[in-house]
Design a protein around this nucleic acid. Structure first.
Lengths: 260, 260
DNA sequence: ACATGTGATCCCACATCATGGGAAGCGAGT
DNA sequence: ACTCGCTTCCCATGATGTGGGATCACATGT
């Protein structure tokens, strides 16, 4: 029944999965969510949603507005998030991304994969799109993460819906697979108005020693900035930044050998 | 039996509480944790710890090193952390803190309360102590958060242990209560070698409209930098920064009126 | 090379614990 | 005043999480 983000893993923990789904509910919505909102969104009984919320509240993963009794993400999430952010060394990436953004005049985004989404975890521009979730099939970041996905993460076949955002969005699984072949061959992904009109994005992978993408690095701007003539130069800049990020973000044991 | 961070709230969800305790396990330890480590730390059976870890893994809240099969915090934590970080507006605080650190020559830390700990969520120095958990009774940040605690958060009586870190650490609950009275009266907290020798810290609150501390702002340095003569000036600088943070971090409805 | 120990992973019967319906209490909007 | 929606608590039911144990894999020491 619970058909939320976490679909698999039947053997184990129902309550835990539902509680984590509750946390994932706070992505889309700006305003705080009430217990009834959660129940509706996850197709749970109000009792259950309320009990889960209270448990998360007691552990600090949610906090409650004293006036409205609505919930939002709590201090424990901020705490653990900061911790994992620094454990991944992502604070080291910000200067590199800012540098790349300045050199290219575009917006630089660094994303990692979280289940069926690409999540922008660091950005090199004034517009903080950080924290944003993007679909994998309609973004350059997502195509890169799919093209060099680790076996356990699930390839394109693990993405049932493939919704269309513009008339250019790739909807057919076969077409996506063909596109990924092209991405792997040319070692970059292009998104030309597939998630929104008037936005063109180039993305390259940050690879580990096993040849899988740990992160995706994107350069995003209007089509007038990312022309055919400038593509090669933009790619070389992005790849140089990606190489620098490999050194910054990956431990020596995880890195690939310098020459290739 | 499960006597971890989350102690209360018996009515509701055992499995969920345990799963969240698993996440909290990743605070203290640098290296990754195995399923058995988790079982020992939380006094669970290996079966249960393993099952909880697998569930968290499936939801992206943990990730597993393919070689060692050990766990670490996963992309979903990074993702939600980034989200809540920006929802709280904490990225706006960094420039202010850097400014304060530069003016005073000290380290500036911004912390919020997470259960029985003060958690540094933003810092204004090169040394990133961000993500660090500090006890409430032996730090200036913690005393501030305790002195202006919201009723639901639990005052000093909710802190059972009070361990001593140096010979100056306040251990007696009565002495802590007296110290908090002083903190409230003088509107700042001082930590003079109570958590570690050779470190002196001043902290002031970032108050909301209801008069409770949403954050604590600390200026931390060696005793030679925080002398009696410089204290007043340092406090005025810190309070000015705290006032600025009130505007940056709190929505107009949460803020207190400008004049007081 | 063999022995030994630690840990990961899976299975299964038991009963504990989560579940959802229901009802009381509250506040706001019509 | 009435009603609607929401939060919160209670409770009987049985689905679901629990932990012991068995198995397999790996690494370490002799």
């Amino acid at each position: 029944m619970t058909e939320a983000v976490t679909a698999r893993a039947p053997g184990g923990a129902q309550a835990v999965r539902r509680a984590l789904d509750v946390l994932h509910c706070f992505h889309d919505n700006g305003p705080d969510l009430s217990a009834s909102d959660l129940a509706r969104r996850l197709e749970l009984s109000v009792s259950t949603a309320h009990r889960l919320a209270r448990t998360l509240l007691g552990a600090g993963f949610l906090e409650q507005d004293p006036r409205t009794a609505r919930y939002r993400l709590g201090p424990a999430v901020t705490e653990l998030g900061r911790l994992s952010y620094h454990q991944r060394g992502l604070h080291l990436a910000a200067p590199e991304l800012a540098d790349l953004a300045e050199r290219t005049g575009a917006t630089a985004d660094l994303a990692l994969r979280s289940g069926p989404h690409a999540v922008i975890v660091a950005g090199g521009s004034v517009t903080p799109k950080v924290g944003l979730r993007r679909p994998l099939h309609s973004t350059a970041l997502g195509k890169v993460l799919l093209a060099w996905a680790r076996p356990g993460e699930g390839g394109p076949e693990s993405l049932p819906p493939l919704p269309a955002f513009t008339d250019r969005t790739i909807v057919e699984p076969a077409a996506l697979e063909a596109e990924l072949v092209r991405v792997r061959a040319e070692a970059y992904a292009l998104n030309d108005g597939e998630s929104a009109h008037g936005v063109r994005t180039l993305a390259v992978p940050v690879l580990d020693g096993a040849g899988y993408a740990r992160f995706a690095l994107a350069v995003r701007a209007t089509p007038s900035l990312i022309t055919a003539e400038r593509t090669e130069w933009l790619l070389s800049e992005a790849r140089s930044c990606a190489r620098a990020l490999e050194v910054l973000l990956l431990s020596p044991a995880e890195r690939r050998p310098p020459a290739r």
